[in-house]
Nucleic acid binder design. Sequence first.
DNA 1: CACCAACGTTTACTCATGTAATCGATACAT
DNA 2: ATGTATCGATTACATGAGTAAACGTTGGTG
Lengths: 120, 120
Amino acid sequence: MKISPAEAVVMEVLWRASPRTAEEVFAEVGGPQRWTEATVKTLINRLLKKKAVAAERDGRRYLYRPVLERAAYIRGESQSLLDRLFDGRLAPLVSHLSQSRALSPEDMAELKRLIEEMDE
Amino acid sequence: MKISPAEAVVMEVLWRASPRTAEEVFAEVGGPQRWTEATVKTLINRLLKKKAVAAERDGRRYLYRPVLERAAYIRGESQSLLDRLFDGRLAPLVSHLSQSRALSPEDMAELKRLIEEMDE
DNA sequence: CACCAACGTTTACTCATGTAATCGATACAT
DNA sequence: ATGTATCGATTACATGAGTAAACGTTGGTG
């Protein structure tokens, strides 16, 4: 099941560290996002329904942990962008981004390194 | 204004060739998408409201052309993916994709070429 | 000139999403 | 033991998106 951008923000928190209580998730995300705790709970609930997170009872509360892995999520998103806009090919994406925004020297260096090691 | 995935499909048609009538857009996209002509018209109208396409009267019908440029759209989408998932950096994206799916030799070759020429 | 076909415009309806308040159960403090 | 604070669950509501039918207008045809 597809997870929405707002839900992904919650996932990011859980991917950084889990398990977490709803309150902890809220503590980490409420500020930047200006969400109330109710909103965070709704999002967690939707993620439960979508089986993207699992809950484990811990006394009076629950501890939540990701079920969907970050790598899988990222892969899906990247893939779909690539397919929708670049005919599934990586080179045009890189080409486009390298033109439209300056790459930092570190990025350049890392890219180079990547290409080399992929070459083996 | 943000354009939706379905709307983007219509934009793609217009980016390939324009101006086009609604019927022509439908002809090109209706099949693969299993949309009726009514649906295509709704999408065109929403794109008009969003100023992503412009219409020019041609007798009893209109000819539509893109106002939003493909490059700008692609840039926005790629940028937002990069920011959301890869902290705005290109290298991690490439790294991820190169692991999760095999790059074709041509893709590899082109990437290499890109990196080299960006290096100047 | 009356009618019909072809357009674009308006309206419709369902589902997902963002955002949040309310409800109901329950553990703890007094 | 009872009230209260605290959880999660349920309900709410507006907006956008996907999908499409109905409507109104206008130009062409018989």
